[in-house]
Design a protein around this nucleic acid. Structure first.
Lengths: 98, 98
DNA sequence: TGACTGATTCAAGCGTGGTTGATGTGACGC
DNA sequence: GCGTCACATCAACCACGCTTGAATCAGTCA
């Protein structure tokens, strides 16, 4: 697997994406299983358009992926999302779950 | 050592503290060694009062500690700062550098 | 093809975090 | 006690991230 390193600005931007109560909750929900938007919304009760806004931020930073399934769209944590989040923190070389 | 767990709000607040370009840079500078404010400022070139503002945010979230040394004040990464930062990320139990 | 469900986008507005200029505080040397 | 250095605090302001209400889009079905 290509070990793409992030620039400082990318690391900070990624942390800014995570450091929001709604997006943090979404990432927590997706940590163990893929979910569609309506399922996420059951667990993160915010207006639908607000959830869409935050999902877009997470997509744009590459932390989640979206897959259309008919009317529904399934969201999942990106494969390297955990590694990216841990690597984004300051303090020496990237470290995280082994 | 007491393994104090953070609430969700505390975890998010901690990430918000980290997810700022100035504070991120300060934490990066303190990762390997204690530094006084004027040394930090050489590496993170922002106005002195702005640096003070950000250092207060980091102190208030417990990520850094301050020690007066005559006219100078030395800042250091708190002992458990790395663990707290990794633990603050969403996605299952706290994980971080082993 | 219209109605409905699931989801996104848009424009406008607001709250607040970050910045600035000014001021204050503590330590030090004379 | 005063001037200087190192650092912090304050009040005011502003940029922008987040929220809201409205509109739009994609898929499905009768």
């Amino acid at each position: 697997m290509v070990d793409v390193t992030l620039t400082r600005a990318e690391r900070i931007e990624l942390l800014q994406a995570v450091a929001d109560p709604v997006r943090w909750a979404v990432l927590e929900e997706l940590a163990d299983t893929t979910k569609c938007v309506c399922d996420i919304r059951k667990r993160v009760p915010v207006p639908a358009n607000l959830l869409s806004y935050h999902l877009k931020v997470l997509r744009d930073t590459g932390l989640v992926t979206a897959t259309r399934r008919g009317r529904w769209i399934d969201y999942a944590l990106a494969d390297d999302a955990r590694r990216l989040m841990h690597a984004a923190l300051p303090g020496g070389p990237a470290e995280g779950p082994a």
